[in-house]
Design a protein around this nucleic acid. Structure first.
Length: 337
DNA sequence: AAATTTGGCAACCGCTTCTTG
DNA sequence: TCAAGAAGCGGTTGCCAAATT
């Protein structure tokens, strides 16, 4: 039996909202409060779908909305948050009071993604996540209620989830995100922090790996103990400005001369453990496969995946190999742009 | 000045998750 | 425990105004 449509579509108005409709909706919500979106249009006398009413209210009519251009601070915030959270616009919007997920999403797509593309021209990494366990599909759908609830409830929820013996629950995930948020809030001026643990080269590589993992839903087996938001300055400068990752020999992989890296785990029945050996243009050859990706414990892409970099190797024509950390670092950017 | 192209934004759509009976 | 309803998220579409030809 099919599920009933969210609203009776016949006879309902679509398209732009009129001033009159806005007034009706705003007045109704002012009197009755938010919620009950399904019945709202009928009660308010609007020929609109409940979802449409909700969207109109959230994205346009709400009193606490901040209208006007996105400031540079907000823009930087968006970039930084997107690097960590990916396309989870509602979470990003949660850090920007008065801004809606839709607004941020549009701003990203129309302004920031272009800048990201400028950067990405240097190296294009196109990992076919569909081959990963769970289809590599981002979990969509409603998250905020659980996330927000978890964020509000905080640690008590965690305790409950532990009691239930669930694995990596949404609540736990939400709490982890909450921790990230807290980290962000601690970082008041939003300057890029470089934890002391990053002072050692190996630690830096590890943090980058974790940051990458956090953004892509892939976590290292060491757990998210370090702040995935703690991008180092090099990463942020590359992220925020023109440029591209440095190669081991000091050259840059830019759009004019740079290689186009395509990593497509088109691996057949073997899944992500199959071969990935792709040409990297005329400058470098990435010769690695996903043998290093241990998916044995992963139910879906959000579960912990363990990378073993032993099989990763980037051969630079003219001699030399890229270190694994550099590969990881590069991938981090690209995966999050 | 008219036609075409481009970019930004509002809104819609499909899917997923959460809630409730 | 399960099914249906409700709510919300992210991707996509389409309109409109500005810019360009």
């Amino acid at each position: 039996m099919g599920r009933a449509p969210c609203c009776e579509k016949v006879g309902l108005k679509k398209g732009r909202w009129t001033k009159e409709e806005d007034e009706i909706l705003a007045r109704y919500i002012k009197e009755h409060g938010e919620g009950s979106w399904r019945s709202l249009p009928k009660n308010a006398g609007l020929l609109r779908c409940g979802k449409s009413c909700r969207l109109r209210w959230i994205n346009y009519l709400r009193a606490d909305l901040k209208r006007g251009n996105i400031s540079e601070e907000e823009e930087e915030m968006i970039i930084k948050l997107h690097a960590t959270l990916g396309n989870r616009w509602s979470l990003i919007a949660g850090h920007l009071p008065g801004r809606t997920d839709n607004e941020i999403k549009n701003y990203w797509n129309s302004h920031l993604s272009r800048r990201a593309a400028d950067f990405r021209d240097g190296v294009v990494v196109n990992v076919d996540l569909s081959k990963l366990p769970g289809g590599g599909k981002r979990r969509g759908g409603r998250a905020s209620r659980g996330v927000v609830a978890a964020a509000k409830a905080g640690k008590e929820n965690k305790a409950k989830e532990k009691e239930k013996g669930k694995g990596k629950s949404k609540v736990a995930e939400a709490e982890q995100q909450q921790q990230q948020q807290e980290q962000l809030e601690e970082d008041d001026d939003m300057t890029v922090s470089t934890p002391s643990s990053h002072s050692q080269p190996s630690a830096t590589a590890q943090s980058e790996e974790q940051a990458q993992a956090s953004a892509s839903g892939v976590t290292s087996d060491d757990g998210p103990e370090e702040d995935p938001l703690a991008l180092n300055e090099e990463m942020m400068s590359a992220l925020l400005g023109p440029g591209s990752p440095k190669l081991a020999d000091g050259s840059r992989m830019d759009s004019d001369s740079g290689p186009s890296v395509v990593v497509d785990s088109d691996s057949g029945p073997g899944g992500p453990t199959g071969d990935v050996a792709q040409e990297l243009g005329d400058k470098a050859i990435m010769d690695w496969d996903l043998m290093g990706l241990d998916i044995s414990t992963a139910d879906d892409m959000w579960d912990p995946l363990v990378w073993d970099y032993a099989d990763m190797d980037v051969v630079v024509p003219g001699g030399g190999h890229h270190q694994q950390e550099e590969v990881t670092s590069d991938l981090f950017f690209l995966d999050n742009m």
